[in-house]
């Protein structure tokens, strides 16, 4: 089996012993069975067990292993090793814009706070019927491209508006989730949800930079969802 050596530059910071962050040069041998960046990271950890990163499902549905890979946010488990040019080290950093706990692990409290702030649950105050609430296939289709979000934070941490105002701007992931409930015919809280976003920061800090669309590992389009929320607000106002 053919093997090749991959060079890495990895952001390292352990507050227990490092005074400041540093970049580690390290290499690892991979073979044909190692297809994804995560495979290489797991091998790296066998070489240096102190390299710290999150991972779980290794198939792009749990959203744990989001990293800044050669300057662009993405999931390690969905990034092909063959996509890296030969001879150049692969630079791995934690997601930008969030505090670093250790190495490639960031503190996502702020990100989840914003997600929670949009009330990400179905609100329907009618007494629940005996059977399922009916929804036509067309109405259900409105939720496609919205409910699939895995909360990996690739989008929000690539958004300059989120970098400047992580405490006040909901960010693309949270706004996508907000529209997921606005678009759900079973939800009755559309007005409250729009009120909740009617603010110079929470929604309108989106300047359609579209970094979120560029990095989303699931191919979702938060900018489009944000545009639809704005359109609904305009419609409501006039």
């Amino acid at each position: 089996m053919t093997t090749r050596t991959l060079q890495f530059k990895i952001y390292r910071y352990d507050p227990d012993k490092d005074r400041k962050p540093w970049m580690q040069d390290i290499s690892v041998e991979v073979d044909g069975t190692d297809r994804k960046l995560l495979d290489a990271l797991v091998k790296l950890k066998a070489v240096d067990d102190a390299i710290s990163f999150r991972r779980s499902c290794r198939e792009g549905v749990c959203g744990s292993d989001a990293l800044n890979i050669n300057g662009k946010n993405g999931l390690a488990c969905l990034t092909d090793l063959s996509s890296f040019p030969e001879g150049k080290p692969i630079v791995l950093r934690p997601l930008p814009g969030l505090p670093v706990i250790r190495d490639l692990i960031v503190d996502m409290t702020q990100f989840f706070k914003q997600y929670h702030s949009i009330k990400p649950y179905l609100i329907n105050n009618d007494p629940p019927p005996e059977r399922e609430r009916l929804q036509s296939p067309e109405d259900r289709e409105e939720l496609d491209g919205l409910y699939e979000c895995i909360l990996c934070a690739c989008c929000s941490t690539s958004c300059p508006s989120f970098w400047w105002n992580p405490d006040k701007f909901v960010g693309p992931a949270g706004l996508l989730a907000a529209y997921r409930f606005i678009a759900d015919t079973r939800d009755q809280a559309t007005s409250e949800r729009l009120d909740n976003l009617e603010d110079p920061y929470r929604l309108f800090r989106c300047h359609t930079i579209m970094n979120c669309v560029d990095v989303c590992p699931k191919g979702l389009n938060p900018t489009l969802a944000i545009g639809k929320i704005k359109a609904m607000m305009v419609k409501r106002a006039i």
Partner: peptide, 15 residues
């Protein structure tokens, strides 16, 4: 405490 909800986001955006 972080306070938001100033209710002039839409107007400014439209303007």
């Amino acid at each position: 405490r972080i306070v938001t909800g100033a209710h002039y986001g839409l107007k400014d955006w439209l303007v």
